[in-house]
Simulated assay, not measured.
Amino acid sequence: MMKDQLIEEAKQIRENAHVPYSKFRVGAALLTKSGKVYKGCNIENAAYSVSCCAERVAIFKAISAGDTEFKEIAVAADTKRPVPPCGSCRQVMSEFFDGSVNIHLSNLNADTKTITMEELLPFSFKLSDLDKKEN
């Protein structure tokens, strides 16, 4: 799948976003190494802290379906610049993406920026940081 196709998938799924409070629609399309695409949109709740971003919806859908090897993800929103993932999404992405996974950021004006996971969140908190060291 080409980058432009993945971005278009993200733009299309953003129309399904449930955003009665912010009115800020975001879509994400996640490509697995096997070629399957998982899509997600942001879903808000009156208790804001239990809302879930598009990137995490797509990742959690893939993980729950048993897909754990990812190639790239596209994120799209109606922003002036290519939309960056929030801090929570960056942390989740760092848990499941290796440093070389491409992240395509886009807006509805066809402005795009592609970066790697390592560029998006260098020096991220990892599972290995939980290893206890006995003194």
Results as ranks from 00 to 15, higher is better:
112 T>N: 14
15 E>S: 12
72 E>Q: 11
41 C>Q: 05
15 E>Q: 11
8 E>I: 08
36 K>M: 05
5 Q>L: 09
133 K>C: 02
73 I>H: 02
27 G>Y: 09
84 P>D: 09
99 G>H: 11
41 C>L: 01
44 E>R: 02
60 F>V: 13
43 I>W: 01
70 F>S: 02
39 K>F: 00
57 V>N: 04
31 L>H: 03
98 D>E: 13
16 N>C: 12
123 F>N: 15
112 T>W: 06
65 A>C: 12
42 N>K: 04
101 V>Y: 02
78 D>Q: 05
31 L>P: 04
33 K>R: 11
7 I>K: 11
75 V>C: 03
123 F>P: 00
71 K>T: 03
135 N>F: 14
109 N>V: 02
70 F>V: 07
111 D>I: 04
49 S>F: 14
59 I>V: 14
116 T>K: 09
4 D>E: 15
91 Q>H: 15
14 R>S: 05
58 A>Q: 07
86 C>P: 05
107 N>W: 00
96 F>R: 14
74 A>G: 07
58 A>N: 09
39 K>E: 15
96 F>I: 12
90 R>Y: 00
33 K>W: 00
20 P>E: 15
77 A>F: 07
127 L>T: 10
118 E>W: 01
19 V>C: 13
17 A>H: 03
116 T>V: 04
107 N>L: 01
55 E>I: 12
46 A>N: 02
67 D>G: 03
56 R>V: 07
72 E>H: 06
69 E>C: 07
50 V>L: 06
51 S>K: 02
79 T>F: 08
64 S>H: 11
127 L>W: 03
5 Q>I: 08
12 Q>M: 01
101 V>T: 01
106 S>R: 07
40 G>C: 09
71 K>W: 08
21 Y>Q: 10
61 K>P: 03
21 Y>I: 15
21 Y>V: 04
133 K>Y: 10
73 I>P: 08
108 L>P: 02
129 D>I: 03
97 F>Y: 11
60 F>A: 06
67 D>R: 08
77 A>R: 06
38 Y>H: 03
61 K>L: 11
13 I>M: 01
129 D>M: 04
64 S>M: 12
87 G>I: 06
6 L>I: 14
121 L>R: 09
118 E>P: 00
56 R>Y: 04
99 G>C: 08
6 L>K: 10
119 E>D: 13
114 T>Y: 07
119 E>M: 14
53 C>G: 14
65 A>F: 08
132 K>I: 12
38 Y>R: 01
107 N>V: 00
88 S>N: 10
33 K>D: 00
124 S>E: 13
129 D>C: 02
38 Y>N: 02
36 K>R: 06
120 L>H: 05
123 F>S: 13
63 I>C: 09
1 M>Y: 06
42 N>Y: 04
90 R>S: 08
98 D>P: 10
38 Y>P: 00
105 L>N: 06
114 T>C: 11
18 H>R: 13
22 S>V: 02
63 I>F: 11
123 F>Y: 13
127 L>Q: 04
96 F>T: 13
46 A>V: 14
32 T>I: 09
16 N>K: 15
6 L>V: 10
76 A>I: 05
77 A>P: 09
